[in-house]
Simulated scan of single mutants.
Amino acid sequence: MSLPRETSAITLSLSDENATAALAARLTPCLAPGWVVHLVGPLGAGKTTFVRAILRALGHTGPVKSPTYGLVELYPVSGLNLYHFDFYRFATPEEFYAAGLEEYFDGTGVCLVEWPEKAAALAPGADLTITIEPRPDGSREVRLTASTPRARQCLNRLAAP
């Protein structure tokens, strides 16, 4: 008897913001302290919208803004400290350390990182990478890629019928 193969990536088509919110709601039970999630995609792809949907699924009712200028926003919600980062303005990866952001990745919170490639290899690696590609019809193609065993377990739950 062979065991089912673990899923390490899932690609989905999301037709609109409601579909994004539904995916975020299915993802949130996986999130626990120490998780790092990278959100990748061009400007306007929907990275902040995805973070907002995660926060709403966790019960946050206040505003959710992109941390482009402040670099990080903290949301204490559902017993989690959720940190929303945006590295878009980094001119060099070293700005990650210059900004003192490494202390947030100590394993006590959930870190959602927009534009992680701007910090290159200096920022901690992701458990889960969410790549969002907009399509001309307004829909989004979303690829979830697991890099750790706990993220693969999460994708297996998402892929289950």
Rank of each mutant, 00 (worst) to 15 (best):
R89Q: 09
T48H: 07
T11Y: 01
Q153K: 14
L39D: 05
E141D: 05
K65T: 15
A32Y: 00
L43R: 06
L31P: 04
L27M: 15
R157H: 14
L101T: 09
W115S: 08
G138I: 13
G44N: 11
H38Y: 13
S2D: 01
S13K: 12
G125S: 13
V36G: 11
R150M: 03
I132L: 10
S78Q: 13
L144R: 02
T129L: 01
E102N: 08
G59I: 04
R89L: 06
L27S: 13
P93T: 14
D16T: 05
G109V: 06
T68W: 06
L23V: 12
L122A: 10
P63Y: 02
P116F: 12
S139V: 05
L14S: 06
P134L: 02
G59S: 08
E94P: 00
T129P: 01
P67F: 08
D137S: 13
L144E: 01
E141K: 12
S2V: 09
T7E: 04
N18G: 12
L80C: 09
T92G: 01
L14N: 02
P124L: 10
F90L: 15
V113S: 04
P67K: 12
L74N: 09
V113W: 11
E17G: 11
G107R: 08
A19I: 03
S2Y: 01
L74F: 02
R143E: 13
F90T: 07
F85R: 01
S2N: 09
I54W: 03
L43H: 06
G62W: 10
